[in-house]
């Protein structure tokens, strides 16, 4: 009898300790992230900072109808839908290539990580020199005889931004996929080979399945970093770039400079709603897939 009570107390004590370890982070999150988020939602529901009249969802509707916002949404969606999968695929390919190498793996792996740590402001000049009107790309085209173009102001500018994004973020995806690939026990591959499966089937049935959790983490990190590409774009183009690279963050930044807290918070709210729904779908599908395959 005494033993059970003591062990139950010990269990409760253990739970307590765990909660205590979690507490600082929870408090910090609450004060510095959740509270400000709700405050900005409150800003989104009033009409004016001075005369705080409650208008409900009017700001959100106005933002949705806003032509500039729609344009920004289209551009950002295109960028994320093309850039993130491309990033994942490229880093996966490089990780699997690296796995096949026998020596100098670590060295090459680390080289790909270096672009991630270089500050944006430092490399923007180099990008400008390459893609500008009198830049290297145009010089190459001119030497070969092809027509030149102002790449930074043409409709290809999102492609340039995707190249910059890939350059910066292949490293971290590669590291994650590398660890993931190494975690798959070699025995599975042996079994598949013995059973006579082709390389394709091996890939689809084993690699893809077991890389899923790592892929999920890499995808999330990619999405976070795709929001951060705004810094490079801002340094390259300023507050009002050409209409093909006008992103959501440009819209929000300009509203910020125009001291319009309502539109800023309303657009932030809409973005959050989008992210929540996408993540929900992500989690659901991940759970379903892992149930299906295990």
């Amino acid at each position: 009898m005494n033993v059970t009570i003591r062990s139950r107390n010990k269990k409760k004590y253990r739970e307590w300790v765990l909660w205590l370890l979690l507490l600082p982070s929870l408090m910090g999150m609450l004060i510095f992230y959740l509270l400000p988020f709700f405050l900005s939602m409150y800003y989104a529901m009033i009409d004016n900072v001075v005369s705080r009249r409650f208008v409900g969802l009017q700001n959100f509707i106005d933002t949705f109808r806003n032509l500039s916002f729609q344009r920004a949404l289209k551009n950002t969606a295109f960028f994320i839908l093309v850039g993130v999968p491309l990033n994942l695929i490229c880093s996966f390919i490089i990780a699997s290539l690296l796995k096949k190498m026998t020596k100098l793996k670590g060295f090459f792996g680390l080289i790909f990580l270096i672009p991630m740590i270089i500050p944006a402001g430092a490399v923007v000049f180099v990008w400008k020199s390459i893609f500008d009107v009198n830049g290297i790309l145009n010089w190459v085209l001119y030497s070969v005889g092809l027509p030149m173009k102002n790449w930074l102001e043409s409709e290809w500018v999102l492609g340039i931004v995707i190249i910059i994004f890939l350059w910066k973020n292949i490293g971290i995806g590669m590291i994650l996929f590398w660890t993931g690939l190494n975690r798959i026990p070699k025995t599975y591959y042996e079994v598949a080979r013995v059973e006579g499966g082709s390389a394709m089937r091996q890939f689809f049935n084993i690699t893809l399945v077991y890389i899923m959790p790592t892929g999920f983490v890499a995808a999330l990190l990619s999405i976070i970093n795709s929001f951060k590409i705004f810094k490079e774009v801002f340094l390259l183009f300023g507050n009002y770039p050409s209409e093909w690279v006008y992103l959501l963050q440009h819209y929000m930044n300009n509203q910020f400079l125009a001291a319009n807290a309502q539109k800023l918070s309303a657009s932030a709210g809409i973005i959050s709603a989008f992210i929540v729904s996408v993540l929900f779908f992500f989690f659901r599908s991940q759970r379903k897939l892992s149930e299906h395959f295990s």
Binding site: P36, F37, S40, I223, M252, L264, I271
Partner: peptide, 22 residues
């Protein structure tokens, strides 16, 4: 944890004014 992930994905401008107020 889901809430943590959502907060992580927020761009900076969203929280700038409330942080300033705080």
């Amino acid at each position: 944890f889901f809430i943590y992930i959502i907060v992580m994905l927020m761009p900076t401008q969203v929280l700038l004014v409330p942080h300033y107020l705080l």
